[in-house]
């Protein structure tokens, strides 16, 4: 069983020997995994089965074999489960003749929000996704791609779901828009919402999702925290770039603590490339070491494999 973000918590999504065929074409092939609260990235090349999986999670498709549960129950034709799910599809398809506010009001009522509170609720959610008020009563056909993405996100959030499923939510957004969406998603995750994001923009998933589920050819080929996946790929050491007030002293301290395998002075102002021996122990005692030795830290970043590297390695 692959797990993503479920350490010590009840899984939000649980798949057991899940398969889905389209005629003779295999969409998902006997996969088992768990997804917990927090932000989880769903990664895979085209045809990997991401959309099929998302459609099963959101109750639009039924499994051909095996089982998938969300909040402990099957989502297909199950209002109790669907009440907790918000879905933002990849497709840029909206009812173009409707105005944004009218559409959201209709969907909010359908989602079971008390009629009297719907207008306020809709306005709040449109503010939350930062759609300018001047566009609220315009037909969706007049919206730019970025504005459409914001409205799609708004409809997914309108009933305060416990699980938010987003298929390529950053498509068509400018950098500011991406930042806005990332901020919203991080906030939701911090408030306890489980967020599953499928995206091709790997560096954004890397920055956003601590947990990753990688699909290829309808199978789960890796899942878990990015850190764990990185460790799996490169053993028990980590490569870091550090800038601090006294690089020579820092290396001495780290050697003494038996945390350093090697280093390289990068020549820039206080810059060091470090090969750290035990990343887990390093992360636990690094701050204490800095404090005890009165060292000021200016920069710290990983030089290890990015999500792109993990993805490429895993899908080779």
């Amino acid at each position: 069983m692959s797990t993503a973000g479920t350490t010590g918590t009840t899984p939000v999504i649980q798949a057991t020997e899940l398969s889905r065929w389209y005629g003779i074409v295999m969409g998902l092939n006997n996969i088992s995994f768990e997804i917990g609260p927090g932000l989880t990235g769903l990664v895979g090349p085209n045809g990997a089965g991401k959309s099929t999986l998302i459609k099963i999670i959101t109750g639009q498709l039924q499994p051909s074999d095996g089982e998938l549960t969300v909040f402990g129950a099957r989502p297909w034709n199950n209002p109790d489960v669907l009440r907790g799910i918000g879905f933002c599809p990849e497709e840029d398809a909206l009812p173009d003749r409707l105005q944004a506010r009218t559409w959201l009001r209709g969907l909010a009522l359908l989602a079971g929000i008390v009629p009297g509170t719907v207008p306020g609720h809709v306005d709040a959610i449109l503010d939350c996704v930062k759609l300018e008020r001047v566009h609220w009563d315009k037909p969706l056909a007049q919206f730019s791609k970025g504005m459409r993405q914001r409205v799609k996100l708004a409809q997914a959030l309108i009933h305060n779901p416990r699980l938010l499923v987003l298929d390529e939510p950053m498509n068509g957004l400018d950098p500011m828009g991406r930042q806005d969406i990332q901020r919203i998603l991080k906030q939701l995750a911090a408030e306890g919402t489980a967020v599953l994001i499928s995206s091709h923009i790997l560096h954004e998933l890397e920055a956003l999702c601590p947990e990753i589920l990688i699909l290829n050819w309808g199978r789960v080929i890796a899942s878990g925290s990015q850190l764990a996946l990185q460790r799996r790929l490169q053993g028990t050491e980590a490569n870091l770039h550090i800038k601090c007030s006294d690089p020579a002293r820092l290396t001495r301290v780290l050697f003494k603590a038996d945390l350093l395998l090697g280093f390289n002075d990068t020549g820039d102002d206080g810059g060091l490339d470090l090969r750290v021996k035990d990343p887990h122990r390093f992360s636990e005692c690094f701050v204490d070491l800095l404090t005890e030795n009165n060292l000021a830290l200016h920069e710290l970043r990983s030089r290890d494999r990015s999500l792109q590297d993990i993805f490429e390695k895993m899908t080779e």
């Binding site: 959101t58 109750g59 669907l82 009440r83 599809p89 009812p95 409809q155």
Partner: peptide, 15 residues
Amino acid sequence: QANTLSFLTTRPHHR
């Protein structure tokens, strides 16, 4: 055909 059915079928109601 307009690919907008998912906005309805993901609402909390029986089909």
